[in-house]
Amino acid sequence: MNKKNNLAETEMTEDVQLIHEKPSIGKILSRFSRLGALLLLCIGISLLNQNFLKVSNLINVFRQAAPQIVISLGMTIVFLTGGIDLSLGSVVTMTSVVSGYVLTQTELPWWFAIIAAIGAGALSGFVTGQLIAIVKLPSAVASYGMLWVGRGLAFAIMGASPFFSFPDSFRYLGRGYLLGIPMPIWIVAIIALIMGWFLKYTTLGRSLYAIGANPHAARASGIKLSRTLVSAYIISGMLAAIGGIILAARLNAVDQDMGASFLLPAIASPVMGGTSMAGGQGGVAGTIIGSLIMIIVTNGMNLLGINSLWQQLVTGIVVVLSVWLDVIMRKRN
C-alpha cells in the first residue's frame, strides 16, 4: 500500500513538473485573457448602466454567484478526470430538498440538515461513480440517468407540498454577514482554498489530473482507477450539496425545479476558466473566473432590461461557444 502510494507520488511529481514547466508567453497570456475578459465585460456593462458598479449590486452579484461557483467547482473535479456529471443540477435540488425536509419536518437541529444534505450528495455521487467505474457506462449516460433519479427523489421526499420558512440559524448561511461580508462569499472562499490545496498537494488530487490526462499511464503508475474516479464523483456530489444548501438558505424555500438551471452554467464555467473537458487540465481559479463571467452576463442582461425569458438562449450559446473554444485550443496544442 505504502509502496504504491510512493509510486503514485513519484509519477505525480513528474506530472506536476510537466504542468508547471516553462510558463510560455502564450500560456501566461491565455491565463490572463480570462481575467481580461472578465474585466472588459465589467467595464462594458458599467458603461451601459452605471448601477452595475454600485457596491450593493456587486455584492448581489457575488452572492448570486456563490452557489454556482461551488457547483462549478464540483463539475471541474469531474472534468479533470475526463468525465462529465450531468446530474449535478438535480443533486442540487435533491440535497436542498433533503435539508428542507430535515429542517421543517423533523425536530433535528439545523446543522444536522447540512450533514444530511452533504451525505445525500456524497451518496448520489457514489452511485454515479460506481455506474461509471464498475458498470463502465459512459459518464454522460450514467449521470444523465442519475439526473432523473435525483429529480424523482426530490419529488418523492417533497410529496405534494414545498418546504419553506427555515430557522434563522440556517438562513444565516445564505443571508447573514460576517465582518461585513456575506456568508456565501465566506463559504466560497473557504471551499476554493480547500479545493485548491486538495488538487495541488494531495495524492488523490494529483491522481485526478493523472487519470484524466492518461488513464493507462495512471493505472500503470499504481493509481487505483475506479477508486479515484468514484471519489471524484463523491466530491462533486458533496460540492453540489453545499451549493444547494447555500441556495436553500438564501431563498428560504425549496422547490423541485431549483437546481435544473445550474447545469448549463456549471458546464460552461469550468470550460471558460480553462478546464478542459477532455481531462487532465484546469483548476479552481479559472472556474471561479468562468462562473463570475457567466453570472455577470446574466446580471448585465437584467440591468440592461433584457427579459429574463431569453436568458437560457444566451446560456446555451455561451456553452456552445466556450466548449468550441476549448476544442480549438486543444487542437492547437
Binding site: I84, L309, Q312, L313, G316, V323, V327
Partner: peptide, 22 residues
C-alpha cells in the same frame, strides 16, 4: 465544431427553450 454531442445538444436545448419562452 467538435463539441461532444451531449454538450452540443444541451446547448441547443437552452437555445430552443430561450426562443420558445421569449
Amino acid at each position: 465544431m467538435g463539441i461532444p454531442s451531449f454538450v452540443a445538444t444541451l446547448g441547443t436545448q437552452g437555445i430552443a427553450v430561450g426562443l420558445a419562452l421569449g
